[in-house]
Nucleic acid binder design. Sequence first.
DNA 1: CGTCTGGTTGATCTAGATCAACAGGAGTGG
DNA 2: CCACTCCTGTTGATCTAGATCAACCAGACG
Lengths: 241, 241
Amino acid sequence: MSVMLQKTHQTSCFDCLSSSSSEWGCLTKSSLCVIDRAKVSLTYSPGENVFNQGDEANGIYCIQSGLIGLRRLDQDGNSTLIRLIHPGETIGYRSFLKNMPHCNSAEILMPSVVCFVGRSAVRKLLETSPALALEFLSHSLRDLTQTEKRYMESVTWKAKTRLLHILFVLYEKFGTETQCGEHLIELPISRQDLADLIGTAPETMSRTIQRIEGEGLARFDGRTVRISNLNLFCRHLPHPQ
Amino acid sequence: MSVMLQKTHQTSCFDCLSSSSSEWGCLTKSSLCVIDRAKVSLTYSPGENVFNQGDEANGIYCIQSGLIGLRRLDQDGNSTLIRLIHPGETIGYRSFLKNMPHCNSAEILMPSVVCFVGRSAVRKLLETSPALALEFLSHSLRDLTQTEKRYMESVTWKAKTRLLHILFVLYEKFGTETQCGEHLIELPISRQDLADLIGTAPETMSRTIQRIEGEGLARFDGRTVRISNLNLFCRHLPHPQ
DNA sequence: CGTCTGGTTGATCTAGATCAACAGGAGTGG
DNA sequence: CCACTCCTGTTGATCTAGATCAACCAGACG
């Protein structure tokens, strides 16, 4: 896969911080300036990979816009989509901090702008600004609770519920409303990947979609999902917490 | 539940570090001394709780010897054993660092010695020794990979495999060998809790034990497990990784 | 004694996996 | 252009691990 990097118009970290809810709010102005100078803003197109499983981790990546999917390749060569990464989130930091090769690949799912901060800059920042370690720490703690939550959901919710939940998340991020009041989601991933994401077999995914259509909650046409009655849809969502 | 605290003979952190594989190896001598002076060594008996879900997190706990179980109480009042904590591990740090009440209870399962380091000491250490934040960080990262691994296991392994796996872990920690060459495990938890731990219904736990006995892998008598043929037993263990 | 709690057994149910067939594109190569 | 293979997705039939429901038993404990 040919990776096409391109230095774009460099958005300042300051702008990025204010627009998205990134997790670098703790940093002092001067530290931010260091990052600002050290970072490289990269533009990717769908299908490209930010990094590959097994690659050496040379730094951290903060996604500014677009959508990324984390995939893991198992020993049999099956690739599974394990998580979606939205703007504001930082990836690659775990492998980097552990000084281990990346344990999964980051694949671009929608046109994305990603800021890369290289090893030396991060190292320097970690030395000069102790707050950064704490910030990474709280990031990791958040990931941990998140993972636990997702685990709980996967045992207590059934396939349909999990699918509806993911659809809702995607709707919140990418949903649009047509002039006739219908709500649209353009799915950024294949059925296969969707199945991986909720942890079912692809056949089950198909049937679950059928059930959802049968109940009039949404209509699926290729990768576009149409929700005519958003209230009805929401009433079938799992209750938070 | 009456909590009985008791200041024991204070083992030095230095000794503790060398004997168990604790995660505080990064600290400088002087930092360790600070902890050494600030920590309180506490002795608990089975049934007592180190902290309760909902309690304010006032510091961190490093388990020196014994065994602790983390329990979570859901909204319906059911308590589920979610994890075992062995000597050398540190608990309570997540809630403490997030400045949130403890999200689960820590129940003593075997007579334990636990070192408590209070809020102010940790705060001071975090300020003076930036390496500590990194150490917490790597702890949290380890917890994260661990959680992900356990999640994978819970979907890919079936009940019998998971039970055998846990038995093996317990054997490694607490297993003994009789003079007639039989291997013994004294289970520190009830069937109920064992079922929670591997994520099944108690009925399934019973039946799984029956299957295991039927295959001659082990014999269960109350809380003691007898393994006569350890090789056979190990051949049925899931392959690592 | 009754009552309770933890564990075992049996019977039944079900979500979802698995296996197999097939349909529609999208290439690819002749 | 057609024939061929791939690849993704859909459908149908069957299978199974484990949950659930219910009864029961034994020890603990008032």
